[in-house]
């Protein structure tokens, strides 16, 4: 019973991906879900250990309550509506930060990648920022923007921008020169060349960046919510830990995993739609 619920979150994400797919995509997702079934065994094993270890006294049940207790706490949070509220707060922040990053970093990355002088000029700066951990800048964001929504969305935007920017620049730079040559030999304008060759050719790389950004959006957001927030899953975990509501804390952690899966699966589904022509097991 408890196990089923734990898996429900993962199953939900898989189901979401199925809805938007075309026929070809459907077949690929079918293959993917076969893989999910196989890997379910590992998750079931983990769930069993989590349930049994505290009950058998192998670990202190105070710090790691059995999974069923955690599920119970999760259910109570869900019924009371508190969980949805926190979940919504988090997903709103991470998705809006991610979308803003997409809107900002893709055009910038395309420009930097396409204009060689811009690339040479901006590269050292990009390297510097990329290697500055977003979380290290969190205090700065809070200092300048306060602890409201602005600072949280901003830090997500910041953290998401780098992977998207760098992948986009890379994508543009690594477009097969032969394709460019082939298009150029037809005498098409640089604008058309960009639109019809450079852009579609760099799309897979752009999507890789977006997926990396999706993962870091959650990471950074949760940390930001732990530092200063009144809602959100990061806040929920921190608050629960502070008040020694350990099952609730784990319930929050499980929900974050679900959120991560949801965002990643959503991005994969979108990616498949846009670059279905690309094959390979990693896509």
């Amino acid at each position: 019973m408890s196990l089923n619920k734990a898996l429900a979150a993962g199953g939900l994400a898989g189901g979401k991906a199925d809805v938007g797919g075309a026929a070809v995509v459907g077949a690929r997702i079918k293959a993917a879900s076969a893989k999910v079934v196989r890997s379910t065994a590992a998750i079931a094993g983990l769930a069993a250990i989590w349930e049994l270890a505290p009950r058998l006294g192998l670990v202190d049940a105070t710090f790691l309550p059995p999974l069923s207790k955690v599920i119970e706490a999760w259910w109570e949070l869900a019924v009371s509506g508190a969980l949805l509220e926190h979940f919504q707060a988090s997903i709103m922040r991470s998705v809006s930060g991610l979308l803003l990053a997409i809107a900002f970093a893709i055009p910038l990355g395309l420009a930097i990648g396409y204009y060689k002088p811009a690339a040479a000029f901006l590269n050292p700066l990009l390297e510097l920022f990329r290697n500055t951990a977003a979380l290290a800048l969190l205090p700065v964001f809070i200092l300048i923007l306060g602890i409201g929504e602005t600072s949280k969305v901003s830090i997500v935007l910041y953290a998401c921008s780098w992977p998207i920017l760098l992948s986009t620049v890379n994508g543009v730079r690594n477009v097969d020169p032969l394709l460019v040559k082939s298009a150029r030999s037809l005498g098409i304008s640089p604008f058309k060349l960009f639109l019809k060759v450079i852009l579609p050719a760099s799309l897979p790389s752009v999507f890789t960046g977006i997926r990396l950004a999706g993962a870091s959006s959650i990471l950074v957001l949760i940390a930001a919510e732990m530092v200063g927030a009144k809602a959100g899953l990061g806040y929920l975990i921190n608050y629960a830990q502070y008040n020694f509501q350990i099952p609730e804390m784990y319930a929050g952690i499980l929900t974050i995993s679900a959120l991560g899966l949801l965002i990643n699966q959503g991005l994969i589904a979108i990616e498949r739609k846009f670059s279905g022509w690309k094959t390979g097991p990693d896509r």
Partner: peptide, 29 residues
């Protein structure tokens, strides 16, 4: 004086656009 549609090139490595179907590739020119 430059590239143009009066000359067509076929390369050893095909140089097809992988995101375009066979038909869409032919439509490019």
């Amino acid at each position: 004086s430059g590239p143009g549609l009066d000359r067509g090139i076929v390369f050893q490595q095909y140089a097809l656009f992988p995101w375009r179907t066979a038909q869409a590739n032919i439509e490019f020119g």
